[in-house]
Structure formats: C-alpha cells, structure tokens
Amino acid sequence: MKSRIALIVYILFILLPIYWLLNMSFKTNQEILGAITFWPQNFTFENYQKILTDPSWYKGYINSMIYVSLNMVISLTVALPAAYAFSRYKFVGDKHLFFWLLSNKMAPPAVFVLPFFQLYSSVGLFDTHIAVALAHCLFNIPLAVWILEGFMSSVPKEIDETAYIDGYSFPRFFAKIFIPLIGSGIGVTAFFLFMFSWIELLLARTLTATEAQPIQVIMTRTVGASGIDWGVLAAAGVLTIIPGIFVIYFVRNHIAKGFALGRT
C-alpha cells in the first residue's frame, strides 16, 4: 500500500507541470495574468484556433513531422544491415568502427552548429527538411545501430544458417525472416529515433530559416512587443506533446520487453 502511494505521488509530480500547461492553454490572457485559477473560468479554444488556422503556425508541425519521419526512414534503412554485420561478423576494424560510431552520439550538437551551417549552405541544402534529417542522422544512426545490434545478437545464429541451407538469398532471408523476428527491437529503435529527433532544438534551429522551420522555433515568436502571449505559447506547447503520446501508445507493449535493448 505504501508503495502504491509513493508511485502515485511520483506520477502526480510528472503530471503537475503538464496539467498547468494544459490548464493555461484554455484560458484567455486576462485570466492567466489576473489570478491563479485551477480550472479555466472562461473556457476558450481561441489559443488553439489561432495556431490551427494560421499556416505560418501549423506549418511548423508539418515541418517537424517531415524531417523526423525522413530521419527515421534513413536511419533505419542504413542501420539495419550495419547492425546485422556487427552482430554476426568479425571484420577489419569492426571494434574501432563501432566506437567511432558511438562517439558521434557523444558529440555535443553545439560543436557542430557552425560547421553544419557552413556545410549545408555550401551544398545548397540550407532551410530544407532533408538538411535537418541528415544532421540528426549524426546521433540517430549510431544509436539505431547500437540498439539493433543488441536485439540481433539475441537471435540465435542457427536461424540464419538454416535459412541459407534452405536456399534463401541474403536479402530475401533478411526481409522475410530476420526483420519480423526483431520486430519489437525495431519498434523500440523507432521510439528512440523519434524521441531524439523530435526533441532536438539546436541543430534544427540553426539549419532552417523559413521553409523548414520546426514548431519549437516558431513557438519563440509568441514573445512580441506587447509581452508574451502566454495562452498561445501554452497551446503550442500542448500540441508538441500530442505526437509523443501517440508514439508511446503504439510501443507500450514493446516497452516492457524491448527497452532492455536485448541486453539482459
């Protein structure tokens, strides 16, 4: 019983700041600045309406979605075969290569801000979705290889051997047999890829100007000459949480097994 209470207290601690944001997003600015109210007195959708009817606002969400999806597709496509190689074969320089890959996950994005800006400007990719997606590959590909390698190593090698004896070619075996076997691993990897790309700010902000600007950056616009538009800021914040809720909901059954990353 005591443990139940402790858990509920912790979950309340998690929810309290989010509740406050949600509460604020349904209030008018007068009410927000007027007094502390635990429930909106004049319930209003105005803040959401402002965001969802103005293209310069909602395009931010679309931009974010586009580069996050692009990044997930690119990362998974190249990481799957690479993780297979690391989990099954020894080859020249494999250990060094693996650590080098991981070291990119360790690199602070702040280090790469200036060179990335120059690199993508010089190849004409500045302010495009693909630039942000590629930049996020820097930390997402190593992460995907690392997680997938763990899952693949827990699949017995006999399965590969049997399939080859049965006459499967490598691509057919990989697509038809191996990928379904590590389904929950791919689910968890996708979760992490989404997470780290969706929440990143520094690179996404530096590599975009108007066309591909993500919602996190557009949010900063609420600070205007007449002060901060708190209601709209709160509503925009709430809307950035929603895609995350969907993603968690889809992987919830894999979390218990999959978060150990195949390494228990």
Partner: peptide, 13 residues
C-alpha cells in the same frame, strides 16, 4: 504511458 510522457516533449518546451 504516463511516466514516459516527459521524454517526448521538445527540449525547449
């Protein structure tokens, strides 16, 4: 689901 919630909020949010 509730506990994972903070993980998927953009950093500046």
């Amino acid at each position: 689901v509730l506990i994972a919630l903070p993980l998927l909020i953009p950093l500046n949010v």
